[in-house]
Every structure is written in structure tokens, then in C-alpha cells.
């Protein structure tokens, strides 16, 4: 499918097929989760926890994604990147991150989030550690890793920069490790 038809498909899904909630409720709910985690754990631990939460969301969310879109297999990792940005992000967050910075071997790329609904109103705590250690929107990395794992793509997903930390752009990096094989359950060979 061309990238144009992806766009019209996702516009259609966004308009007609998804339930929406007030964005402030969404932002503040996520914000209070992160703030509570920050009170309970160190920032490094908060990142891990958010990633884990996201991973568990991703494992389930992918089913919703296929049910709503009815898409088939992607033909290449490039294709995957388009689907993630133009349909995945559009459908759940109503944003379309820019896909860019492909590595030479075509196994790594970046998503630039121009607008991140998770971070409305947020300012990181003044203590210096927060700006150096905390990835506020780390749940997104987990979601992507979870989703991709369900479609046999073993990926690493991590933030490279975040405007919350004072960086000029918010950039996520996706790295394809390997294609997972369909494994036969133990004892059924």
C-alpha cells in the first residue's frame, strides 16, 4: 500500500472507528502515574517500569490494531515504519511522527515526535537528575516493542532526545535485532 492510502485509511479509522477521550484526562492520568513512580523509585527504575507497562500494553494493543485496520503483513521494515507512524500513532494518539535517519543497512530508524500529547503541561522537576535520567514518555518505547514482538520483529526501542529535557526535538530510535521464527510449543515436535 502506498503511503498516501495509509493516510486516508488512518484518517478514516480515526474519524469513524475509534473511541476518543478528553486529552486532558489522558495527559493528567499518565502524568500522575509517572509522578507517583518518581516518588517511589529512582529515575532509572521509573524508566524500566514505564517500559514494562508499555510492553504489556503493546502485547494487547496490537490485536486492537489489526482488528480496526484489517492490515496484512508488511512487505519490508520500511513498510513497517510507515505503518507505525501513519497508522499506529495516528490511530491511538492522533499524531504522525516523522520517519527519518535510516541507518545504511535499513535496520534502524528514528521517529521524530513533533507533538507529544503525553507531555502537555509537563515540566520536569528542577533537580538535575530528572533532566538527565528520566525519559518521561518511555511508555511509548514499551508499547512499540510489545507490538513489534507480536508480529515477529525483535526490536530495541529507546528515546534519544526529548524536548522536556531541553533538547530541540523528541526522537525515538527503533532498532531491528532479528525476525523471530514461529516457534513450535515445547513437547509438540
Amino acid at each position: 500500500m502506498s503511503s498516501k492510502s495509509y493516510k486516508s485509511l488512518s484518517d478514516d479509522i480515526w474519524k469513524n472507528r475509534v473511541d476518543k477521550i478528553n486529552s486532558e484526562v489522558f495527559t493528567l492520568t499518565y502524568g500522575s502515574i509517572v509522578a507517583q513512580l518518581c516518588r517511589d523509585f529512582t529515575y532509572a527504575e521509573v524508566n524500566t517500569q514505564l517500559e514494562k507497562m508499555g510492553y504489556n500494553i503493546g502485547l494487547r494493543l496490537v490485536e486492537e490494531f489489526f482488528a480496526k485496520t484489517g492490515l496484512g503483513r508488511c512487505t519490508s521494515f520500511k513498510d513497517t515504519s510507515e505503518v507505525i507512524s501513519k497508522i499506529g500513532f495516528k490511530m491511538f494518539l492522533n499524531i504522525t511522527p516523522t520517519v527519518t535517519n535510516w541507518s545504511g543497512d535499513g535496520k534502524q530508524f528514528s521517529l521524530i515526535l513533533d507533538d507529544n500529547p503525553l507531555t502537555d503541561f509537563v515540566e520536569l522537576p528542577e533537580d538535575n537528575n530528572a533532566a538527565n535520567e528520566l525519559w518521561y514518555s518511555n511508555v511509548l518505547c514499551g508499547v512499540l516493542r510489545g507490538c513489534l514482538e507480536m508480529v515477529q520483529l525483535d526490536c530495541d526501542v529507546y528515546f534519544v532526545s526529548d524536548v522536556l529535557r531541553g533538547d530541540p526535538i523528541t526522537e525515538m530510535r527503533l532498532k531491528l535485532n532479528k525476525f523471530l521464527k514461529d516457534e513450535v510449543p515445547a513437547g509438540e515436535e
Binding site: 493528567l28 502524568g31 509517572v34 509522578a35 502537555d120 509537563v122 515540566e123 520536569l124
Partner: peptide
């Protein structure tokens, strides 16, 4: 009000934000 919406800000805390 915008400051209050920041999840890291608590009621009655000093507002130290430069923004």
C-alpha cells in the same frame, strides 16, 4: 492553572519554574 496541571507540581509548593 497551567502550573497546577503539571503532574510534578504539588499544591502550596513554591513555584520555581523559570517558564
Amino acid at each position: 492553572v497551567k502550573t497546577m496541571l503539571n503532574p510534578f507540581y504539588n499544591v502550596n509548593e513554591k513555584i520555581k519554574s523559570e517558564a
